[in-house]
Every structure is written in C-alpha cells, then in structure tokens.
Design a protein around this nucleic acid. Structure first.
Length: 412
RNA sequence: UCCUCGAUAGCUCAAUGGCAGAGCAACCGGCUGUUAACCGGUAGGUUCCAGGUUCGAGCCCUGGUCGAGGAGCCA
C-alpha cells in the first residue's frame, strides 16, 4: 500500500505508472487491516521505500476475461493469477497429504520404473520412446511392480507421473498425470475399500485445514467437503445398472430425476447417453448420473470380469464379476480411484492371461509372484489431478497441473 | 477416429452480401482505500489459409489448418 504523502510527488507518479508484473523490492511497515485482501489476508505493508528491479512491458494477461487457448499459451504467466495460484497450492497440499498419510500407516514408498519394456497388452495407449537399439514405453501404471514389492515390504506405494497416449479430448483427461498406487499384502477387497475411504477423507480434511483461504478464493462450497468422512456408500455394479436403467426410463417419461439433495439431475442432455445393459462398462455419462445420487464419493463394486483387467480376482461362485471397485467423486466428477483384489493363484492367473490373448513370456516374473508365498492382496490407483479438480470444484483438469500435457498441448 | 461449435485490433467479442466496430490492455490527461476501480482523449486491422460465386464477401459455397466441448478409452 502506497500513500501519496509518504513519497515525493514525482516518485509517486513514476511508481503509479509501473506496468503490471514489474519487479520491485519494497521496504515498509506491516500492519493489520481488515481491508487487506489476499492469502491469508488481513495484513498490508505501508510502503516507505521502493527499489525498482525490472520494469515489465506489455504483460499479456490483463485484468479481463481471456480465452482458454490464450491462457494456455501463456501458462507460464497464468500460474501467477489468483485462481491458478490457489489451485496449485491445493495440489501441493494433496501431494503432501498423500505421502503423510501413507507413511503414517506404515506404507513404504517404492519407485517403480517409468521406462518399461514392450508391453504385450496393446501398446496403442502407450508413448513409445527410443531405448538404444530397442523400444521402450512410458509407464501407465506401477502396479505390477508393486505386487512384487509387497512380498518384500508388506504395504507399499509408488507415486509419480504416469502416461497415457489416449486421444481423449475431455475435461477429465491429461496425457501425463500423477498417480499414487498403494498395494497391500493380506488385504481383500472389503479391507481395501476401508483404506481408500480413510485415505480420501484424510486428503480432503488436510486441504480444509491447510487451504481455507485458497478454497475461498476458488469459491468452493465447503459443505461439499466437510461431509467427506468414512464410510462412503457402496453400490454394486448390478444395482448400479438397475438404477441407471430406471433413471433413463424416468427421464424419457419426463419424470423428474432427483439428486441426493432433491435438486434435479444435471448434465444429462439426452437420455440415450444412459444406455446400458448388464456387461457394459460405464461411460462418463453413467458416472455423471450416479455420482449425483450421493453426497459423498461412491464405490461401485463388482464390475463384469470381461470389461476389467486380467489380473482382477473373480468373485467365488460368480466368476462373471470380479473383486473390483471404482471410487466416483461426487458432483459429477467421476472416477478418481480404480482398485481391485488381485488374482493370487498362479494357474488362475495364467488362464486369465490366455483368455486375454496375452503371451506368457513377458509376464513370467509376474506369475512367479504367485508361486513363492502368494497371499491375497489388493491395491488401487488414485489420480492426483482428478482429485484436486474435484476438491477445488474446478471445471477442467488442465488447471490442476502447473504445465498440463494434453492431446493438443505441449507448449509451454 | 467420430459428432457439435468456433477462428475479426495485443485480449474478449460485435458487424441483413454494401464505409471494419465496442469494451479491456497500451499511450496522454484527471481522480484515488483500490482489489477485473472510475472520467476524458489518442493510437491500433493480411477479418486463419487456398480457391470459388457475386457489381460487391468478415458474412454465401468447396477444400484445408488450428482451437473448444462431447463420445469412445481411462485415473
């Protein structure tokens, strides 16, 4: 805060004309003033002396609305803006809380490789890189390696960037994103879900404690976060399909479909988007609809074995479904966690590889894990940017990463 | 890969097929407890590219390029 009386008229005029984002060193007296904005706010600096560092010229981001292409071209400057600044500070809190909670629960952090050998499972979703005379692929999961790690360390997690070469152009997809993947020995699906709901609740609670001002700056409705405590509702895939079919029928009949709080369902423009029969995987419209039925995140359990990965344990007596669970964030945000109990029997695993048409050779080490002291085990992967997007109540995932990588975006 | 929409001043957007416009930013002046301030003035254009229709195209047609939203796939 500068006052005219504290400065020579000419100096005051010169300072006043400094362009936005010029660099200054200021000296002054800190004082409390309720009118002062910012984070944490309530304090301001009565400036007595100013030393000019660098005078900025034509700062591109002006105090008005900008288009997304322009802002993304100027991402290196956009992160200075209040909203982006708040969002990225929440992201840092989430990343800290992830390690804090897992370390406190006795998990051991294990790095899994980012450069991985030619995966036999379709490489269309993987980024290929030159590896000397050979080819390598950027990892899209560390899970298989973590299954090896648990037999040495019990409870482990890997936490790092992961890569998907999917040609997705939606508000939920990045081609490079951060994922934390815990894996636990002697753990079945029910126990896994208890870990997940405690974990996610801790992340939300830590952000509420650490970033109240940031959430306020983002305009987040805090009541949507303070309610995030265990237990989370569990909905079987079977029941979810029935619910979706009923919702679709009501929409088609013009009957109101209500959210958990009694307000009308949002975001389903065409009832045909909710088409589903048992056996189909969920698309994003299905997640959008289901998540609005609950105040908290909801687990969808027991997906059809056919639409899920080969390593998921089939349900005893009902092999057409597997011990899998996705966690869908509320308010239409959708999947933030995918998890399952893994097959622990070597013969069963080999049979599943065969059913998926996968060669045994690249997975020999993975099958080995079931031959030497195999135990029931489970794990999950949580997407950091999706979680931050949900906690912050943000429209698009690209703002949850400092320098997001999207299908059409590598700069800056 | 598919569907929908879009591209005009530095930025955000207007403009019946008939002179290219506004707000913000910049620059000049006024004002000061402002927070995307306010008042007055100045300057700012290869209307994405290549063709075509027309007396005349920012606008209509064809083909591209780029972007946004969505689908599929997924965290």
């Amino acid at each position: 805060m500068l006052f005219k009386g504290d400065f020579d008229e000419a100096v005051f005029e010169a300072l006043k004309s400094l362009p936005q984002e010029s660099a200054l060193t200021v000296t002054g007296v800190v004082k409390a003033d309720p009118r002062a904005p910012g984070v944490p706010g309530g304090f301001e600096l009565g400036v007595r002396a100013v030393e000019l560092g660098q005078r900025a010229e034509d700062y591109p981001i002006t105090p008005k609305e900008h288009g997304i292409e322009f802002l993304m071209d100027n991402r290196h400057l956009w992160i200075r803006s209040a909203r982006q600044w708040a969002l990225l500070r929440v992201r840092a809190t989430v990343m800290r809380a992830i390690r804090q909670w897992l370390d406190g629960e006795g998990f051991v952090e294990m790095s899994t490789p980012i450069l991985t050998p030619s995966a036999a499972e379709g490489t269309s979703n993987l980024f290929e890189v030159a590896y000397f005379e050979d080819k390598a692929y950027l990892a899209q999961t560390g899970q298989l390696y973590n299954e090896a790690n648990i037999y040495a360390f019990g409870k482990v997690y890997c936490f790092g960037p992961t890569f998907r070469a999917e040609k997705s152009k939606t508000r939920r997809h990045l081609t490079e994103f951060w994922m934390v993947e815990p894996e636990i020995a002697f753990c079945d699906l029910d126990q896994l879900l208890e870990i997940e709901e405690r974990f996610v609740s801790h992340l939300v609670k830590t952000v509420l404690e650490s970033n109240a001002q940031e959430l306020k700056a983002l305009g987040r409705d805090l009541s949507r976060l303070t309610c995030i405590v265990p237990p989370f509702p569990r909905l079987s895939y079977d029941d979810a399909v029935v619910k979706l079919q009923a919702m679709q029928a009501d929409l088609r009949a013009g009957k109101p479909v209500l959210r958990y709080d009694g307000a009308p369902l949002q975001g389903i423009d065409d009832p045909a988007l909710l088409d589903i029969t048992w056996g189909m995987d969920f698309g994003s419209p299905h997640e959008t609809a289901l998540t609005q039925l609950y105040e908290k995140p909801v687990f969808i359990t027991g997906f059809p074995t056919a639409v899920k990965a080969f390593y998921m344990e089939p349900v005893p007596g009902r092999p057409e479904v597997c011990k899998s669970a996705d966690l869908l964030a509320p308010e239409g945000y959708g999947e933030i966690i995918g998890g399952s109990e893994r097959i622990s029997d070597p013969a069963k695993l080999e049979a599943r590889l065969h059913e998926h048409g996968l060669p045994l050779d690249p997975y020999r080490w993975y099958v080995d894990l079931r031959k030497y002291g195999s135990v029931p085990h489970s794990g999950f992967g949580l997407g950091v940017e999706r979680t931050v997007t949900w906690i912050c109540g943000t429209e698009h995932i690209r703002e949850a990463s400092p320098f997001p990588r999207l299908i059409n975006r590598m700069y800056p």
